[in-house]
Amino acid sequence: MHLPVKTVLITVALGLYLPANAQEHDDHAAHATHDTHEHHDHNDQGADSGQASHDAHHTNAGPAITRTEDIESALEQGGEPIVADVLGVVCDFCALAMNKIFGKREEVAAIYVDLDTKALSLVLVPGASLSDQTIAELAIQAGYRIADVRRGDEALGMAS
């Protein structure tokens, strides 16, 4: 039994050695998008949490908003459409986490996590706003990361 004990202790020690927020800093896919800055309105509150701002105005067309009944209804009310590409969303628990975290926000009128497109579709309450920074931070609270954010016509898939 000594060998397993030793193995466990070594493994636990190695695990504890990892930084507590390692997942926020070692995602090469996420950081790769920093190479394509095209605007200057990001803030400096952390590399990952500000990443969505870095990428918010990409011309790279991602998936458009997923039009569920709730999304359509919220769009008809005049809310702003937002689509955020999410990293690591591979199961229903992931979608549930995003729904719970974003669904609590009073700015959000409708939400849908599309596992096929790995995209978070949001429609805001008319007149409300939700910054890229906040979207990125909320995704972290859910346990995930935002790779890109699109708004308006781009979110609707109508950008030229």
């Binding site: 695990g15 504890l16 990892l18 390692a22 995602d27 896919a29 590409d85 990293l87 990361r145």
Partner: peptide, 8 residues
């Protein structure tokens, strides 16, 4: 959660 790796 010591580490989480992500990709799309």
């Amino acid at each position: 959660l010591a580490k989480r790796w992500f990709d799309a």
